[in-house]
Design a protein around this nucleic acid. Sequence first.
DNA 1: GCAAAAGTGTTGAAAGTACACCCATGA
DNA 2: TCATGGGTGTACTTTCAACACTTTTGC
Lengths: 223, 223
Amino acid sequence: MVQEPHHTHAVIATDTVIFTVQNGELLALFIKMKKRPFTNRWAFPGGLIKSDEDLPSAARRILREKTGVVPAYLSQLGAFGRVDRDPFGRVVSVAYFALIPNDRLALATSSEYGGIAWIEVKKAKHLAYDHSEMLAVARSELQRQIQNTTIASSLLPSEFTLTELQRVHEAILGHALDKRNFRKRLLMSGLVKPTHKKRKGLPQPPAVLYQFIKAKPKASRSL
Amino acid sequence: MVQEPHHTHAVIATDTVIFTVQNGELLALFIKMKKRPFTNRWAFPGGLIKSDEDLPSAARRILREKTGVVPAYLSQLGAFGRVDRDPFGRVVSVAYFALIPNDRLALATSSEYGGIAWIEVKKAKHLAYDHSEMLAVARSELQRQIQNTTIASSLLPSEFTLTELQRVHEAILGHALDKRNFRKRLLMSGLVKPTHKKRKGLPQPPAVLYQFIKAKPKASRSL
DNA sequence: GCAAAAGTGTTGAAAGTACACCCATGA
DNA sequence: TCATGGGTGTACTTTCAACACTTTTGC
């Protein structure tokens, strides 16, 4: 994750936890490490920021350079600065969490990088650096934001059925939700509106497609 | 706030917004700037972190060095990294917010620094750097945490009356609260317990003194 | 006696939670 | 015809919000 050690002052990096939901599973994007002492362990894509770029710009650039992914949503988690967090030098990392809809995943999975993979969050263990801690923070922040904002719009195509949206919430929260209560609350909230289209071709009654009313959710603070 | 410019990479600083509540007013601690372009404007105490100290340690050290204050509570707000936020160089600041009870304020106000002052938050305008933005974030985080945690214990002496506690909540939230509902909720929550002492000597009936059940609140994440 | 805060319950509204059945479709 | 999810309403519980008066004390 980091190349330059041995400054008198700490250097600044970003690491980004990018999530998607696919087939009812919450996935995050990892890069497999080569360097000791983290050989063959997974880490989030990260790198050093440049002196002429904002923090979110750095996070986006590094994510694109290392994985080809362009996130739909990006929000800061905070700074991670334990002295011993990086064995290669004194690095303070500003962590971000990001989202991408599961219909734009091809970009990432078709990347040439050998060591990139979307991994089920619940199976991601023994990560490099302090990334297990980052993942825990990212996950709880995701759980918090999914309930209070429209960030789910960054995890789904622009049109979706209410059941698809419910599956996203369930994957993130980690437990089943009641269908009638979920729909009631969602429709009351005024965040989504029905289109006049339906999802057909499945062995079920056609489901109405909905869309979020404001296309792009705003980060609470995306510094 | 910062002395060293002109690295090829950004340097890392911390700035700390420290609050207290006194006489029903929310106050924060500021230092008056001398350097242009911020001459005579207020800023939060801040400085560069050292390569061998954790972020919270750096925040505490700098706060102590610049103001003499030792906070009772410290919690990270996040990293502020706009490219142009500091005219003296590329500095990313990890902001903290901190609390101190109003019976330990003497340390700070008796400091020799000429340019230090506790200022009512609602009167703090036109701050140096991006500190107005930091203050807004700190204030909303304070409002969030006061409702969900026991951090109020870091703003009061160890024993206090329920009215004193209510005044702290009101100062932070910026509006009056209903006395009966406030007491009901608080006593139900189980976070405080009555002592057997009473506050006497005032032209009122003696009020029961309470204390928080866990002395020190834990930061949600104090990296 | 008066100013100032202590202490104390009830009611109505709103929000949240649990729960079950029939229907349309594609294979 | 069958498996799959689509769509729909009610009753109960819990939580939140509004609201006023009497008492004790120091001056």
